[in-house]
Each structure stands twice: as C-alpha cells, then as structure tokens.
Amino acid sequence: MTEPVLFHVADRIALLTLNRPDKLNALSYALIDALMAALDRIETDPAVRAVILTGAGDRAFSAGADIDEFSTNVADGRAAALRDFVRRGQAMTARLEAFSKPVIAAVNGLAFGGGCEITEAVHLAVASDRASFAKPEIRLGMPPTFGGSQRLPRLVGRKRGLELLLTGDPFPAQRALQIGLVNAVVPHAELLPAARALAQRIIRHGPDAVAAVITAATRGLNMAIGEGLQVEAEQFAALVGSRDLDAGLAAWRERRPPRVSG
C-alpha cells in the first residue's frame, strides 16, 4: 500500500510529501495521522533541523479534506464529525504551528481548504508560480474547520480574510504573496531549491535560539502584548548559560562568525 506521507532527510532537512496525487493530495484521516507521526519522529531527532512540506505530483499541494471520508462522519452526527474530522484537523494545524523546528510549506499547486489551512499554520511558505489558493468551505455550506476561520484573518487582516472566507473564490500565488500568506513566489522548477535555501538560512543559527523564536512569536500572537513579552522573556531566560548563547556572544566580541552547534 502506498505510504500517505513520504519521508526523506538530506542536509539536516526533512522533506515530507503528501502522497495522494491521484486525489490531489486530499487530507484523508490516514494521511493526517501519518503526518502527525512523522512530526513526532522529527521532533526528537537532533539530526533534523528543519522541515519542508510539499505535495506529490504537479497538480496539487493539497486540495483539502477528503470530502467522501468526512461526509460519512457528518452523516453519523455531530459527535462523530467533531471527534473524527474537526478535532483531527485542528490538532494537525496546531501541531504544525507550534512545532519547535521551522516548518516551510513548498506549495506546488492547488492549496484549497485544508491545504490552505496548512499553509496558514506553518511558519513559512514558498509558492510555485503555478500555485493557487482558495477557501471553498462555504460552498459546502460550512466554515473552515482546521483553523482557517481564525488564522487567515490574523495573517491577512479581517476584511481580506472575510472576503476570501465568504466568497470561496480562488486566488493566485501572487495574491497570496501580496496579502502575506506566503513569503515568496518562485518559478515552478525552483520551488524545492528555494525552500531548501530558506531552510539553510535558518538552520545556520543555533537550534535552541530558533526554537525560542518560534515559541515566542507563535504563542505571543495569540496573547495580549504584556503576556507576549513575558513569553519572550521566558524564552530568553531559558537560553542564559547555554552553549549557543555563550558562543554567539563570544563570536560578536571577537568579530567572527559564530560556531553553531547541532
């Protein structure tokens, strides 16, 4: 049986590929569970410093949730739909958002529904010039269920977010760049090299500092500024006396590049 998520590591970067190209990499329950298991494996592996997430084939990053599968849960009632569908999807995007190592989406095609929600949740995103995005859940008579009603307006602004959520209209990669959903748009053939180059620019820094930045920024966005500043202070305090901070300060004093551990 074909693996729903492909896993490959090179140069301290894990490449995770959503692997249902015949279904436009729709997010089946098996695929979501496999992605969560891969993240568990990566988080405890010190040899992996960053993650790139992409889709198999040339057509889609992910066209969203597997409608055939979750419609069965909807037919079974609220409790089943919430337990099996909504909570599973929200756990996935929350895990990506709070992951302690940088996660970069390499959006290679359609990123509709849940595929767009993954893009919203990850730390950084690079899109192919062939990529397109949409929030089409309203066409099914429902709001987004994997966090999109909350993250998208926070990312792009309330009115822009509501326009996309309420119309369900698709929008191209350049529009995603303009509104801040992705960090860059590159020619399709350069997508993975561009994502790898971005990952390398991050992992040249110490892993503890990278994790502290991700934690402070991600948690702080959902807090009042005073609480966020406390998180920032806690993350700094945890690094006092660490090898990376001591080495970084020594390198600055000696006017040389720091030597990064890990």
Rank of each mutant, 00 (worst) to 15 (best):
L181W: 05
P172Q: 05
I138S: 09
G113H: 10
Q174I: 04
T167Y: 13
A209D: 01
A134Q: 01
G113Q: 04
A184T: 05
E227Q: 14
G115F: 09
E190K: 13
R219N: 12
E232S: 13
A237H: 10
N108T: 08
F171A: 03
A197C: 02
P207G: 10
R151E: 07
R196K: 12
R151W: 07
E234I: 08
A195I: 06
Q235Y: 06
R219W: 08
G109W: 02
N183Q: 13
R130N: 14
L191F: 01
T218C: 03
P144T: 08
A238P: 03
E227S: 14
G161R: 04
F146Q: 10
V185R: 03
F146R: 14
M223E: 14
V107Q: 00
A111T: 00
A199K: 06
L124P: 00
P207N: 02
A238H: 00
R196M: 10
D129C: 08
A233D: 11
F112E: 08
A189N: 09
A125G: 11
L177Y: 03
V210N: 02
R154C: 07
R158E: 14
R151G: 05
A194Q: 09
I138D: 04
L229W: 09
A121N: 05
H188W: 10
A125S: 15
R196L: 04
A195M: 10
Q235F: 08
R204C: 13
A125T: 03
G228E: 04
V182W: 03
V231G: 12
G148S: 06
